[in-house]
Simulated scan of single mutants.
Amino acid sequence: MKLLIAYIQPHALEAVKEELSKRDIAKMSVTNSLGCGAQMGYHENYRGVEFDVNLLKKVRLEIAVNDEFVEAAVESITKAARTGEIGDGKIFIIHLEECIRIRTGQKGPEAIG
């Protein structure tokens, strides 16, 4: 079992969800996030005050999958979110030691579904 954490551009979310759905991956958590990386932000002028915006809007996806779905999930996310520009995002893959479905008490791969 693995936990995929992906940071993507907000405009790519719908396309990523569609690609994941095509591969029967539908369970995920989505959170709005702020972050900085190679994009380095931008300079803005608001009501005569100049300031730097270095925390840019991103979307964080958390997807728990069984091992046989890891590659399909990664391919779906990269296919839908890649523009070739700086700021497309990152995917982190973390080993999940255990998963427990609260409603049924199921454990392990069966709990992920």
Results as ranks from 00 to 15, higher is better:
Ile100Lys: 05
Gln106Arg: 02
Arg103Tyr: 04
Glu97Met: 06
Phe69Val: 03
Glu97Ser: 05
Val74Tyr: 06
Glu75Lys: 12
Thr83His: 06
Ile63Tyr: 08
Val53Gln: 05
Asp67Leu: 13
Lys58Ile: 13
Thr104Gly: 13
Ile100Phe: 10
Asn54Ala: 04
Arg82Lys: 11
Cys99Ile: 02
Leu61Ile: 02
Lys90Ser: 02
Phe92Asp: 00
Val59His: 03
Arg82Ser: 12
Glu68Gly: 00
Glu71Trp: 01
Gly84Asp: 03
Arg60Ile: 07
Asp67Tyr: 11
Val70Phe: 01
Lys79Glu: 14
Ile100Trp: 03
Phe92Gly: 00
Asp67Val: 05
His95Leu: 03
Lys57Leu: 14
Leu55Tyr: 13
Ala73Phe: 07
Ile93Ser: 13
Asn66Pro: 09
Val65Arg: 04
Leu56Thr: 03
Ile63His: 08
Val65Phe: 07
Ser76Gly: 12
Ala81Leu: 09
Lys107Gly: 11
Ile102Thr: 04
Asp67Ala: 14
Ala64Thr: 12
Glu71Thr: 00
Ile91Tyr: 07
Lys58Val: 09
Val59Pro: 04
Ile91His: 07
Ile63Glu: 07
Arg103Lys: 12
Thr83Tyr: 10
Glu97Gln: 11
Glu62Gly: 01
Phe92Arg: 01
Lys57Pro: 14
Ile63Trp: 13
Glu98Lys: 09
Gly89Cys: 09
Ile86Thr: 14
Asn54Gly: 02
Glu71Gln: 10
Ile63Gln: 04
Ile86Gly: 10
Gly87Arg: 03
Ile86Met: 14
Gly87Phe: 03
Lys58Arg: 11
Ile102Ala: 07
Gly87Cys: 12
Thr104Val: 09
Phe92Ser: 00
